[in-house]
Design a binder for these strands. Structure first.
Length: 489
RNA sequence: GGUCUCGUGGCCGAGUGGCUUAGGCACCGGUCUGCAAAACCGGUUACAGCGGUUCGAAUCCGCUCGAGACCUCCA
């Protein structure tokens, strides 16, 4: 990495509602925890947007020279779903429906999730811990919270005592919610007589007859509440307080609010200095969700099997499309917008290839360092990938003008620009090069075919040259006649 | 109902007080070309409405209209 370009990184902190200078607790080490998926079904494109956005953040932190411990959990227990008034574990429910073991469900969808991570070019986190692998840690944290007077046991379940907590801490500081407002709004939803206070939430649930996953605890057999797993795992792997906690915006309340309460209640320390929330992916103006039916699977779009789109799009194009909006904005997915991204992405990657072969001059006609600084400035401003891309396209325009001898670049600047552009496109944005897709065996054949066509063109045998061109088009190969040579793709 | 966010040109999408023509795509014009496509260059179109603050607002404040999110299932 290039330290001369390393300026102060600013991150929008949900906790303060402001952009703050990012200073890690431990010099150049960064601890980051991101709430991962609940694997009771295949993750949809909206789920993936969050993970892609945090992949960008992870990548830029690495690029900035930080040593990052990136923890992204897998929820395989304790995630309660609420259907028809019945509360039950979502994994257990899926297992019962499909008549398999709960862990078989998790294993099945985790395989798919991992495959998606590779397809969309996400870097693997440092560790992906599971809730079921940390039952003991969860129990220990719950015991601490009880010990500190912020939780109580009732009929084999344990609840967090929000009223007691509020005497020492500010419940609602992350989401900006006031408990007295909540009370009027949500009382009807809670038929939980066991709770002392409507806002109390479960840390441990007593086992019910239809539970498929049950563990022993000091309070009897049962299973953990949803929020406690993240507190247990983040504390175990990153410490009582770490640098960044991320997740989807829809987790802000109650999940993240309750995580803060649990950590403070157990350790007396707030878990994270920076809270980051990625915004939702919309389809037709509405949040993508299963209940609305406006979701599609990440593999459907790359295979072209989604009914919502007329053709397939490469994962790189989808990733590029997502990078063109800021992670804190909602993003509207439409076919027209995807087509625009496809063309733009091609132009960007083409220009990198072009830069490799562009002629050099004695002097550069524009400031390359200034150009590159623009890349860094964009990302240092709360990971503003859309501005980064706009700045990259400024470079694209310059590169094209160099080709036409309207701008010039010297050898040193060329190498500098090329390596930085590759770095930002490939390593930071996580976009693979598009040209790798051509088959090695096809290449010599195409050279031959195009040579025959050139011969025909030289002889003004337009019928033959057009026959070749149209035939290739039908085979999905596009001929691109240039001034000196003919390309294809 | 409560809390909060947002409304930018044909589409997606940055930008928070005074030139950013943001950017991409589309469209129009041009260069190149046997023709076409591709590629490249150039250009047009905007800040939901009304009122206010200000020398000056897309950017701050108020109201109206519209959209969305959360309110213990959500990435």
């Amino acid at each position: 990495m290039n330290n001369s370009n390393k300026k102060q990184l600013f991150i929008f902190n949900t906790l303060s509602g402001k952009k703050e200078a990012f200073v890690p607790i431990n010099n150049d080490m960064v601890g980051m925890y991101v709430c991962g998926p609940t694997l009771y079904s295949e993750p949809h494109m909206g789920n993936m947007r969050t993970f892609i956005n945090f992949d960008l953040i992870y990548r830029y932190l690495l690029h900035s020279g930080y040593e990052v411990k990136y923890v992204r959990n897998i929820t395989d227990a304790g995630h309660i779903t609420n259907s028809a008034g019945e509360q039950e574990d979502s994994i257990g429910k899926a297992a019962r429906m499909e008549q398999v073991q709960p862990l078989e469900i998790v294993y099945r969808y985790n395989l798919k999730f991992q495959e998606l991570n590779r397809t969309y070019n996400l870097l693997p986190p440092s560790i992906e811990p599971t809730a079921t692998g940390h039952i003991q840690e969860q129990i220990e944290i719950i015991e601490k919270i009880i010990e500190n007077g912020f939780a109580y046991v009732k009929n084999g379940s344990v609840y967090f005592d929000v009223k007691s907590y509020m005497q020492s801490y500010d419940y609602g500081e992350l989401s900006g919610r006031k408990v007295d407002e909540l009370e009027n709004e949500t009382r009807a939803l809670n038929a939980q007589e066991e709770k002392r206070f409507f806002a109390d939430f479960a840390l441990w649930k007593k086992a019910q007859d239809n539970d498929m996953q049950i563990w022993r605890s000091p309070w009897g057999e049962g299973n953990p509440g949803w929020h406690i797993e993240c507190t247990a795992m983040s504390t175990k792997y990153l410490g009582k307080t770490f640098d960044i906690h991320g997740g989807g915006l829809d987790l802000k309340f109650p999940h993240h609010e309750d995580e803060i309460a649990q950590s403070c209640g157990a350790t007396g320390q707030s878990p994270a200095n920076f809270w980051m929330h990625a915004n939702m992916l919309n389809v037709n103006g509405k949040k993508m969700s299963k209940s609305l039916g406006n979701f599609f699977l990440p593999k459907e779009i790359v295979e072209g099997t989604s009914k919502l789109f007329s053709k397939a799009y490469s994962p790189q194009v989808i990733r590029f499309f997502m990078m063109q909006s800021h992670y804190r904005s909602t993003l509207d997915l439409t076919e027209e917008a995807l087509n625009a991204a496809e063309k733009g992405f091609e132009r960007l990657t083409d220009s990198i290839s072009l830069l490799e072969n562009v002629p050099v001059s004695d002097d550069s006609s524009f400031s390359i360092p200034l150009c590159i600084q623009g890349f860094y400035d964009a990302m240092n401003d709360d990971f503003n990938a859309p501005i980064l891309i706009a700045n990259l396209f400024d470079a694209v325009k310059k590169i094209n003008l160099i080709k036409d001898n309207k701008e010039a670049i010297n050898a040193g600047d060329k190498d500098f620009l090329l390596s930085e552009m590759k770095c930002f496109v490939h390593d930071v944005l996580g976009l693979k090069h598009n040209s790798d897709s051509n088959d090695d065996r096809l290449s010599p054949v195409m050279d031959l075919v195009l040579e025959l066509r050139q011969k025909a063109r030289f002889n003004k045998d337009w019928d033959t040259s057009d026959l070749i061109r149209d035939g290739l088009k039908n085979a999905g190969i596009e001929v691109k006649d240039g001034k000196e040579s003919t390309g294809w793709k």
